[in-house]
Amino acid sequence: MKTLFTELRTSLLLMIVLVVLLCGAYPLAVWAGAQALFPGKANGSLLVDKDGVVRGSTLLAQNFSSDRYFQPRSSAAGNGYDATSSGGTNLGPTSQKLSDSVKAAVAAYRTSNGLGSDAPVPADAVTSSGSGLDPHISVANALIQAGRVAKARGLAPDKIRELIAANTEGRDLGILGEPGVNVLRLNVALDRAAPAK
């Protein structure tokens, strides 16, 4: 009984010490270091326009659906691109629902980008990402969309391809991961190159 009491006392005291250290001092130390060294990133990589209005985060996808913009991957986060409810469809490989949505997405993608009825469609263009907030699309996907955007904006296709290249994030260290085009940054660059009339 005495042992139990001592053990309980030690547990409680140690828990208090560790809470102060690990739940107080540790995150505060990281916070101080992060705010001093990388303030932009520590606060969400926010994209702020010239009027000081926050327009999004360069790390998070937001919805673009008009022909004038590059379109991100479809999103299963909340009702779509909801950054407080991240997640994927979690539909399995033999899901009827998933198959139906892929079928519809393939048809829509071919129509809006003027592809033939048997042209292969990039997988990332017709599937949802794991987070529902994937900021990137594949380079192949961007190049297919380039024609549509060029036409809608009256810009030269070469100029669009230039912007795609400028907003492509390559593999880290030249090896890690896959290259992706940051849709939000690309669309901002588009607006800058050809402002809305």
Partner: peptide
């Protein structure tokens, strides 16, 4: 997924449902 590939999804891209572009299939 052969079911999706039959619907027109590029077979070279692998299964991208639930995956992020920056990581790709291997990562």
């Amino acid at each position: 997924n052969p079911i999706h590939q039959k619907l027109g999804v590029s077979a070279a891209d692998g299964n991208m449902e639930g995956k992020e572009v920056r990581f790709g299939i291997f990562s």
